[in-house]
Design a protein around this nucleic acid. Structure first.
Lengths: 346, 346
DNA sequence: ATTGGCACTCGATAGTCGGGAGTGCCAGTC
DNA sequence: GACTGGCACTCCCGACTATCGAGTGCCAAT
């Protein structure tokens, strides 16, 4: 229904609006872009675009503003990613050089991303759900306290302090360790958790103190396995939202809350569908289920530790999609490479 | 210079202003408090208070608002803590019951505190600077990758993945472990870090592969020790700031930034001086060095894991000090008790 | 299909004008 | 000397008005 030039007008509106934060009128468009037609013609196109609900006029006879749908068409059909400058690429690679460990790397990644884009940056931890339990270790702290350490073959480590009901002897401790180890080592975390659940269901074999201790420790191990199965996020840049207050009709409260309740963002990012290049965007009302109807999220997939995860940006609907998509793509790319060359995946 | 009644007037102003968020005038005071004198008399007192810079009039002939100094006098001399309701106490104790570990306990603590007060809640980790290294463990991941685990006698655990320059044999690994263990176990973390630094300074004994591996691992251990020495914060409730926008003349940006840059808050909380009950408040311009001249922080000390740390609230200068001080005190109290009965301190 | 022209809408800005809350001061009272 | 009632004054605030200008929709002409 809308002409080819109509789409170009939409593109111009999105670009100018993102740029100036003011409703854009027909005259502005003729001035700033070389359409070679008059303002009246542009107005006709805009009327069409408005019929299609791609743009909207905040007040009768004011300039037009893109709608959610308008942004959607823009990113799907009109946007060309704006590649990063070589200086920016260089900045990323130095920023991410020589990470101490995975936590450190991801932390630096979000910092780099928020720095680069001025938006809230989010990185999903690579999922460890497919990993297998590689080791279980105990460290005696003295008394009845024991640190229980679980390690996966992908190099993820979790530790937790267990309070046993009584003090174990050396030999008992060894027995407990042995029992737990045979129960879980070598198994994928899901299976290991399953095995522990079955142990809990079985009636106590009444073999005395060791059996009780095994059950206590097993419960701790199960909690740690749960940590692996749960996805986690690292975020940075929430302060930048204060600068963008005007972009959110209500307040920035829902955004800050989502940032604190990581689970919301986790679900949102999980449900987004990436294109063939691993990029995805979720815009405005598409996020209504998550209480983020005035915000947008762009993500890029990356490969790490043998599984896929996402890096993303959270910001106002009125964001610079070409730049931000390019930024997440570039950072995801670096991340994949770094995780790959460290061979953390196997 | 100001009379006894003058102070009562200050108290009334603070209370009403916190309550209504509007400059309070002489008539309001006579209406809402039983002073038994006329508005004109109150006005005279208010003029005195203004001379002392305890209150200020936003505009000529408007009500008065407390200054930083006014709040200071209020908390130092006029405020009586408003004890929590028994329902609130009950809520805290159920909320904090059965923590899985220290991380979990502190996480729940900040949540409870922010829930209770509607402010940003902050908890310092107990300092582990005085702890001693209890164990060092290695877990082979296969290849040249090793998880290095350091445990203190206070039950704090840190782990990190090390990439050795080559694959170790079993016996070499044992030798490395032995070397590191004798270097650091039993020593306070500061001394252990020192020992490692000295090792790094010594010229290589050229004893070959093991020596190189020891140095690599030692550097990792040093990083982990650094983790123990650095204080850490847990926070919650940053979203509540969006609701309080009007209380900050500029924007909430500095607050959000401080929350993200934990180090600022860490220093701020570290420099505050507690009274004999472990309570402290830092108000408005007193925080100017930290870029938080429009915010206040109240803290209470607690004892945990053999060292002292703080739990606090961050909010607008116009906050309910009696309630908030009572809240941090109550929560600190619970925290001390929980950490004590778990005997995590020894 | 495109364009120039034109009437119209409506937000933004500035100016004006009471009303009201609150003050400072003063003279008078206890 | 402390307190009080009275009063003139200041200044914020909201309502109202007028003007301006950006931008639109529509129409007749090309």
């Amino acid at each position: 229904m809308v002409s080819e030039r109509g789409l170009q007008v939409l593109r111009a509106i999105v670009q100018d609006y993102v740029d100036t934060n003011e409703p854009v009128g027909s005259k502005t468009i003729v001035d700033r872009h070389q359409f070679g037609v008059s303002a009246a013609t542009i107005r006709n196109d805009m009327a069409l675009l408005e019929d299609e609900e791609l743009i909207v006029a905040p007040h009768t006879s004011s300039g037009r503003v893109p709608t959610d749908k308008g942004y959607r068409v823009f990113v799907d059909h009109l946007a060309e990613l704006r590649p990063l400058s070589s200086a920016q690429r260089a900045a990323i690679s130095t920023f991410l050089a020589d990470p101490a460990d995975l936590d450190d790397l991801l932390m630096r990644t979000v910092r780099a991303l928020t720095q680069l884009t001025g938006q809230v940056a989010i990185v999903q931890y690579p999922s460890f759900a497919r990993a297998s339990v590689s080791h279980v270790e105990f460290v005696h702290l003295g008394g009845a306290r024991v640190v229980v350490i679980v390690v996966t073959d992908t190099g993820r480590v979790s530790q937790r302090v267990a309070f046993l009901p009584y003090e174990l002897t050396e030999t008992d401790a060894a027995a407990v360790k042995q029992a737990i180890a045979t129960l879980v080592t070598g198994k994928p975390v899901a299976d290991a958790a399953q095995a522990i659940a079955e142990l809990g269901a079985k009636p106590s074999a009444a073999s005395g103190t060791v059996d009780v201790a095994v059950r206590v420790v097993a419960r701790i191990v199960a909690e740690e396995l749960e940590d692996f199965r749960q996805d986690k996020l690292v975020m940075a840049g929430s302060a930048t939202l204060a600068r963008r207050e005007g972009d959110f009709r209500g307040s920035i409260y829902p955004l800050l809350e989502a940032i604190e309740e990581q689970v919301t963002l986790l679900r949102l990012m999980g449900e987004m569908v990436a294109d063939d290049k691993g990029l995805a965007a979720s815009i405005g009302r598409e996020n209504a289920d998550f209480g983020l109807a005035e915000a947008s999220v762009v993500t890029s997939d990356y490969d790490g530790a043998g599984s896929r995860a996402r890096v993303g940006l959270l910001g106002p609907m009125r964001m610079d999609y070409p730049t931000n998509l390019a930024a997440v793509r570039a950072v995801a790319h670096y991340l994949s490479r770094l995780l790959d060359e460290d061979d953390t995946s196997r």
